[in-house]
Design a protein around this nucleic acid. Structure first.
Lengths: 221, 221
DNA sequence: GGCCAATATGAATGACTGTTCAGGGGCATC
DNA sequence: GATGCCCCTGAACAGTCATTCATATTGGCC
């Protein structure tokens, strides 16, 4: 994307040191990202990445310890941003679990429509990381799932949700996984040239989510 | 699908020649399968696969043209069987679209719980195949989606479904994709050691599916 | 002008890749 | 016993890979 050469910018803007130190790293990140998305981590070579930002293979190791670390770096930043947005959406949705769930799904779906490349890489390439690097990403995913579960719990407590039960018992985790799976994987097939806009997708999925948990109408019809 | 060498079959018990000709091919398939599932197609070597079934790398090429063809063979047989099972489930579910949808989801979910390794490979590794080999797999997936869409259409026509709309219009394809995504990806997280049995998963997902499309209760409560 | 710390280069390293192929065994058939 | 077929072996081939490193270039600072 933004391909920047290490041009020294004369002392002016306050972010001088920052921009200078960030430029090559950012270029590598962006190039790696685009290539991982298109062709997949294991078949993208270090040479490919570096050539795409006008450098040679050796230069990578001035900025990242290894190819693995580069991937990890990319995925964690995407995942962290997703978690942050989800929390923010729920926090800003007021008190009603129905509104919270709708807000959550809306943000989640819009993000996965808009940044579907990022989502794709994060979901598809995670398997190439070694166990310890994968751990904190899994933690973040569990955290997101638990946000959803908490909304379910509160909604049932207040009597505004009536989710499907398994042999008379609730299994919020399974329902949360089903919901997240369906929302996550819009990134696999949604395209802006399709029938629906991001906004329409968000509305549709929020609607389906509320139906899945048997939400009562917000105001008495 | 059934790849059979041009072995002249002597006139005798048909099972003999079949067993003999199938043994090495099947062993390779199974070994490749297990390894692709665990580590991913591009990092599994031909040597790995063949060692796992007690042969050396060269022997692969007595049975498959290339590593690519081996993967393609594995995925198409899985996908074909899935499509067959889905059609059968719907056909055997009687006339009511609600029963058809429930039967479809039940079969689809049970299969993706039970054969989650197969599903995982088929979904994750498909990207390594070249365009022409990928085409018939995509065709099969569209066929499955269209089964679902057809059920939606019929259900709405009969007034037993009331699915969420987008700006007053139906988008059955989007809903079908959402439903299939959520059912497909149980293969990523379901484990027999978890809280629910396959049967309970099937019931839960069938229930959610009916809710998603606003199905009327089957008999007046 | 001289020095320093970053950073880029590109050849070299050593390992691993999918695929080919000449050679050889095992076995049912003549 | 010979023939012919299927199948396997294991070395060889021609690549590609991530990573390292000695060497060079750079701009900022004294």
């Amino acid at each position: 994307m933004t391909k920047r050469k290490p041009v020294r910018e004369e002392a002016e803007a306050p972010a001088v040191a920052e921009r200078e130190s960030r430029a090559p790293v950012e270029a590598i990140r962006a190039a790696a990202f685009a290539q991982f998305a298109e062709r997949g981590y294991p078949v993208v070579t270090v040479r490919d990445i570096m050539k795409a930002c006008g450098l040679t293979q050796g230069a990578l190791y001035n900025h990242f310890k290894s190819k693995d670390e580069l991937l990890h770096d990319i995925i964690t930043s995407t995942q962290g941003e997703l978690e942050r947005q989800c929390k923010q959406a729920v926090a800003g949705a007021g008190d009603d679990p129905r509104a919270q769930l709708a807000a959550f799904v809306r943000v989640y779906v819009v993000r996965h429509c808009r940044l579907r490349i990022e989502a794709l890489v994060a979901n598809r390439e995670i398997g190439w990381l070694d166990a310890e690097r994968v751990a904190d990403i899994r933690r973040s995913r569990r955290a997101i799932r638990d946000i959803v579960v908490a909304i379910f719990v509160e909604g049932v407590k207040r009597g505004v949700f009536d989710p499907p039960q398994v042999d008379g018992r609730n299994d919020f985790k399974a329902i949360a996984m089903a919901l997240l799976d369906q929302c996550t994987h819009v990134s696999k097939w949604y395209g802006p040239g399709g029938d629906l806009t991001e906004e329409q997708m968000a509305n549709l999925y929020a609607d389906m989510a509320l139906r899945m948990v048997g939400a009562q109408p917000t105001r008495p019809a």
